[in-house]
């Protein structure tokens, strides 16, 4: 089998696309725009959860309940959820395009990426907006202090 290798820098043989949305361009723009926002959101998330106070050893249900009843942190976390999962899913898609050569493998992997991103976005969004900081029957010492005032 002989392989013909084109001269370097020869122009694309493919005709330029004429119509439709250039999704690859918007994906490229999305990675940069969401990346800048995610630097702020994730550095803030790490600063508050891992650096302030006693860091990781202070995390528990009451800590999360305090954050997820505050509209500021609800918006922060939901933004982080959507931006990071789509950014990560699109990045994984790039790797599949680069390294998976069989059409079936590519199809399965991209479908799996899409499914996990979609499921986790829905799950995470539902958790933030249906969260109950004071579930009935839970031991009071595990709940945030404001639950005892109810």
């Amino acid at each position: 089998m002989s392989t013909t290798i084109e001269a370097p820098r020869s122009p694309y043989a493919r005709a330029p696309r004429k119509r439709g949305v250039n999704w690859e361009k918007w994906g490229w723009i999305y990675m940069r725009v969401s990346g800048v926002v995610l630097v702020v959101l994730i550095f803030g998330h790490l600063f508050v959860n891992l650096w302030l106070g006693e860091g990781v050893s202070a995390l528990n249900f009451a800590f999360v309940a305090g954050k997820l009843t505050n509209p500021f942190w609800m918006v922060w976390d939901v933004l982080m959820l959507w931006l990071a999962l789509i950014h990560g899913g699109n990045g994984m898609r790039t790797l599949v395009n680069d390294y998976a050569t069989q059409p079936l493998t590519r199809g399965i992997l991209k479908w799996a990426i899409f499914a996990s991103v979609a499921v986790l976005i829905i799950l995470g969004t539902l958790v933030v907006f249906t969260f109950d900081p004071c579930p009935a029957g839970a031991p009071a010492d595990l709940l945030p202090s404001f639950c005892s005032a109810l």
Partner: peptide, 9 residues
Amino acid sequence: TALVRVSPE
């Protein structure tokens, strides 16, 4: 994190 929706424990 979704376990906050299950129970504090």
